[in-house]
Design a protein around this nucleic acid. Structure first.
Lengths: 342, 342
DNA sequence: TTGTACGCGTTATCAA
DNA sequence: TTGATAACGCGTACAA
């Protein structure tokens, strides 16, 4: 005696079971599920009944194997806990939760090599689209993206030469705008305080420098940076360093809001008046900036929207409709608050 | 003329190509890759050479289809941006990045129904393990977990009746400890301020209540909660509400650190002395608690470690070694700081 | 609009 | 220790 088809699979119904029950061919069931409009009204209903009764759910692995394409969005970000990228990722998930697509998330830890490695892991899965943070891929990573054979969206920045599509904003302009605001508010010895110093931080620094030089205020001793990951506590420490190097400091543009909050706390602790003695500007405009005391001026960025847009663009490309703009600049906004109002 | 094997696949080498090149059977290549110790030294080397020369990478979809098991960890969390879960997720990713396992992350948005839906999406993928946040699954979700046919780890809480394995800590004890600390510090009209009020927040509230009742201090007017998502700004607002309801308030145990920070800022703004007039305790001990001015007392929790442990337990179960303890309590620690030092 | 035949790349089974 | 054969469940190509 031989038991047929009992080897594995736990007896879950297959497309063949549905087809038999509905009295149609398997391929018709397949079509009814993926392109309902190409199946007659009648059969579609019969098939739906059979599907419901059997509790049939397509096997994504079999589907991927047969079609050489998985319903997966590969997403690569440098950090899972940095609120900035968490918001982007949230936007991506929210945009994808309705449809058939899953998300495959990778954490590059701000490393180009890890990015390459993850791309090599994602490739064999034949993802439907790839979304990656930043524009500074290694040559190898860039080649992997170019040959991925699916839409690619780089996010969080703008740049001249996207692999495929791009949605973000100019960190250089953001840094310049923040610095110009401090200058206009009357600050002169304006420091830059930055942690991590990934490519985006570097460009914000470049924007700071451009503004300071244009005003004839640049002084290398005003710049305090570290490759160490950013945190509120680190902001306090860096601010102390900055003050030690440049005692006449009267303002700071911070790499991000965590640093800015650390600076504010250190000012409180050292009884330094904000904004009178020191002006503070952050970057990203996290919720807490508006509630801090004094509230902190910041550059508002649209991370969640960047996530949503990146998915919309990829989806359009998958549907064959390449969007007319392959590069989308979502901009930023300077939010003036008490920390620079003197 | 018929072109054989040219239909799709982009010409990537398959296991058959490797087998031919190495002069062995396909199945031997498969074994050499997955269980090297079951293949002779000689063949193993030959196969490795062929793999390298061809640049062969196994197709995960074909592998999943044939083995009826995907090298995927399904992970379900209620939020992607809440730092608490982001840390857990980071721990999971870091623990899995070396091995063959991918991560499939789902955002339940604090909804039992979404959790069910995601579990139904994950099921057909035949994940190697499932990690879910919390212990309050709907009956349907719980059944899906029980019949998933893979190790299941519930995280972030302890509880008496795990689906399979469990790693977390007691939110009730955490809430009680925080409140008892305020009582011991001499505060009497101690409020509870909570947002979101998910099951874990509810248990922290229960801990607060237990401590207050034990001391004969409980008063319903001291409790201020909202289902609205937590934020620093919301913390400010809720604190104002709390003060309006209970003007003699002299301390607050906050649901989490964001709320606590909001309370602190509101105290600054209203010139309420901390810790003299109001004592503040947070929950989770985010980095900024130690740097705030004054620094804020909080309950330190081990989110990253919870993520790592959950993977370790799942991995052990996959390897057939069910860990001796199916329930792991990682505890918490009260970190006393200036905000309650009067 | 529907169906037939076959292949996708891998692993389980079982025999050698 | 190794290999031949047969699935795994589905989609593509092509014909009807």
């Amino acid at each position: 005696m031989i038991k047929p088809r009992s080897r594995r699979g736990g007896g879950r119904p297959t497309i063949a079971d549905v087809a038999r029950k509905a009295g149609v061919g398997a391929i018709t069931v397949s079509r009814a599920l993926r392109e309902p409009e190409r199946v007659s009204e009648d059969l579609r209903r019969q098939i739906q009944v059979a599907v419901d009764e059997l509790g049939y759910v397509p096997d994504p692995n079999a589907r991927a194997l047969a079609s050489a394409r998985a319903d997966v969005f590969g997403v690569l970000v440098p950090s899972l806990t940095n609120n900035v990228f968490a918001e982007v990722v949230r936007g991506i998930y929210d945009s994808l939760s309705d449809g058939p697509f899953r998300v495959q998330l990778g954490n590059t830890h701000y490393s180009g090599l890890e990015e390459e490695r993850l791309l090599q892991v994602f490739g064999p899965q034949r993802p439907a689209a790839l979304i990656v943070a930043g524009i500074n891929q290694t040559p190898t990573a860039r080649k992997l993206l170019e040959t991925a054979g699916c839409p690619v969206v780089q996010v969080m920045e703008t740049g001249p030469d996207p692999v495929d599509m791009l949605v973000g904003f100019s960190h250089l302009d953001g840094g310049r705008t923040a610095t110009e605001h401090l200058i206009e508010a009357g600050y002169r010895r304006i420091g830059f305080i930055g942690a991590r110093m990934d490519p985006r931080s570097q460009r914000r620094l470049a924007g700071y420098r451009a503004a300071m030089e244009a005003a004839g205020l640049f002084d290398a001793r005003l710049v305090t940076t570290t490759p160490v990951p950013s945190s509120v506590t680190l902001g306090r420490e860096l601010f102390r360093d900055a003050l030690a190097k440049a005692p006449t400091l009267d303002g700071v543009f911070c790499n991000n809001d965590d640093i800015a909050l650390g600076v504010l706390f250190e000012c409180h602790r050292a009884a330094i008046a904000v904004p009178r003695t020191i002006g503070i500007v952050g970057f990203n405009d996290l919720d807490m900036m508006q509630s801090a005391f004094p509230s902190i001026t910041s550059i508002r960025t649209y991370r969640y929207e960047i996530g949503r847009r990146s998915v919309a663009m990829a989806l359009a490309a998958i549907a064959g409709k390449r969007p007319e703009q392959r590069v989308v600049d979502l901009g930023f906004e300077l939010i003036r608050r008490e920390s620079t109002a003197r």
